[in-house]
Design a protein around this nucleic acid. Structure first.
Lengths: 211, 211
DNA sequence: TGTACATCAGTGAACGCGCGTTCACTGATGTAC
DNA sequence: TGTACATCAGTGAACGCGCGTTCACTGATGTAC
């Protein structure tokens, strides 16, 4: 198969070459401009430079396009988190901090994906591929917490799953309230990264997990 | 002025009597069914049993209707939180626990308001009334944290504002991921209330704030 | 290497539909006297 | 207490518009021989 690395520009002729990806890209742009509700099939086609009927060759409907945006989002999210955690190097505390920053950074840099993943009304149980990708991303956080739990005294070692849910929730709350890269961000008088780092440190302290 | 307590049913004649409220109610129903993006002006009119032109007597456009839903939401939210906190009675720890439960309960019982308040794409800075109501709700949490900070040893008393932001973020993360009353809720193997309570206890422990 | 053919991935025209919005209107209500 | 009138809060018809969706079609690509 010929590989056109065209992105949304430069179609050569009748065939687009990479329309599926181009539609996802277009959807991202539209979501970031008008929110998940503002994504229409026709608009995506227009942005990709094809006729309104063309998307039907690749997606059943708008929902499936949205699910694909979310899928791509969770995949990227998982990759970003995994890279930040870096298997707990150089040490688990530094790595956890990087992980938290990566979470907030993702919300800031990819507000459209973030919205598609968490605020698009997508029902995860109806899109198992997306749910699987979401689980993979969460697994990064979970294994981080397993490593961290080792740092607690044996007799009061906290359950890693609970730790992961707490840290995820705190990160997600800060991300969606204060760090997101779109107009819904609320202002606070400090970088959200600092807020998260401080919160996680206090929390770990409370668990008896120390650097 | 005559007071028709009709809700959306039972209009007597030509005039509705309480259309403004009825439209907000209708909007809530529509949002809970189809998400914030699914709210249309025409639909709200239909649900309220009036012609498509009628809403223009009360709201400039769909956005203003949405803002009113969010306003009503923040007002109710503030009232619910305030009642739960109950000025720190019977004691601040019990009251904080009730406050957290009220937060999660609101997300569960009023998913439409919750979505309008936090996920509708509403820009708070463009709706100062809504922003003011949101601030009032946050103030409940803030004064709770001020009271709690008193329980910490003097020399390491935590800044109440930071505490409030942490607890808000944790609550909000848990609410929007695990407690919301709509299809976007993710399943976890425990009540979200327990997750929040445990998290807050660990956090307070980490701060040196004890019951 | 060339040709015929199947398949793929687009087009563009068409349609029904619902939304947003405006308008002159009208029924109901409140009030001045 | 009654009447005239102003105002308010609806109606319903109309319009333009964009979206979703289908359809027969066609240009481009891949492949069998």
């Amino acid at each position: 198969m010929t590989w056109h690395k065209d992105g949304q520009r430069g179609r050569k002729g009748y065939h687009h070459g990479n329309l599926r990806e181009a539609l996802v890209e277009a959807a991202l742009k539209l979501i970031s401009e008008k929110g998940p509700g503002g994504l229409t099939f026709a608009d995506a086609a227009r942005a990709a430079g094809v006729s309104a009927a063309a998307p039907y060759r690749h997606f059943r409907d708008r929902d499936e396009l949205m699910a694909n945006v979310a899928l791509k989002g969770f995949e990227r999210f998982g990759a970003v988190l995994s890279k930040a955690w870096a298997d707990g190097t150089p040490d688990v505390f530094t790595a956890l901090n990087a992980l938290g920053r990566a979470y907030l950074g993702f919300a800031r840099d990819e507000p459209a994906m973030f919205a598609a993943m968490f605020e698009s009304g997508l029902v995860l149980s109806e899109h198992s591929e997306v749910a699987a990708a979401a689980d993979l991303a969460f697994d990064v956080l979970l294994s981080a917490c397993e490593a961290l739990a080792q740092a607690a005294p044996l007799e009061k070692r906290p359950p890693a799953r609970m730790m992961a849910l707490h840290i995820w929730s705190l990160s997600h709350g800060i991300a969606s309230l204060f760090s997101r890269g779109d107009a819904a961000r609320r202002a606070i008088p400090m970088p959200p990264e600092d807020l998260l780092e401080a919160g996680v440190l206090v929390y770990l302290d409370g668990l008896g997990v120390r650097g």
